[in-house]
């Protein structure tokens, strides 16, 4: 009866690989507006009635079409974390500060790098985006190189 059980002879393992070379994601409707704005060093969100959402969502919570509008900030650090290891658990030479940053003129926010020391970074401080040089911008969120602490000594 006990035909099935541990039998090392029958343990065969097969390697496999996801045979998709890459995925290409389109930015979408307001996403395309954001991409164009990023190339110009600006940020946009979606206006739904009295509320503005960032990042832009195209459609509003009630499913009406939203309207793209510029987001000017100021940008505030809501929460942060300090990363000391890379994804393979190797110690980083310099810790990386990642923060959830919200604009005061919209609902929502984004996760991005902050160029700040561990002493400087704190919830509630004001930061501002630093864009890549225009010729290097691709319309993605990495066109913002990082956020820097406003009025800090760093240039």
């Amino acid at each position: 009866m006990a035909m099935w059980g541990k039998d090392p002879r029958v343990s065969v393992r097969y390697p496999g690989r996801m045979e998709v070379e890459k995925y290409v994601y389109t930015p979408g409707l307001h996403g395309l507006e954001l991409a164009k704005a990023l190339k110009e060093g600006r940020l946009i969100g979606t206006r739904c009635g009295d509320t503005i959402y960032f990042p832009p969502t195209t459609f509003c919570p009630d499913h009406a079409m939203g309207e793209p509008v510029e987001i000017k900030g100021p940008w505030i650090v809501e929460a942060y974390t300090v990363v000391r290891e890379d994804s393979s658990s190797r110690r980083l030479d310099k810790p990386v500060v990642i923060a959830y940053i919200t604009p005061l003129d919209a609902e929502g926010g984004l996760i991005h790098y902050v160029e700040a020391s561990e002493e400087e970074i704190a919830p509630g401080i004001e930061v501002e985006p630093v864009f890549a040089p225009p010729e290097k911008r691709k319309g993605t969120i990495r066109d913002i190189l990082y956020f820097k602490v406003k009025n800090s000594a760093q240039e």
Partner: peptide
């Protein structure tokens, strides 16, 4: 298109 994002999955099984 501007804003196109590409990603290579490195999934091995």
């Amino acid at each position: 298109l501007p804003g196109l994002v590409e990603h290579r999955p490195e999934a091995k099984y």
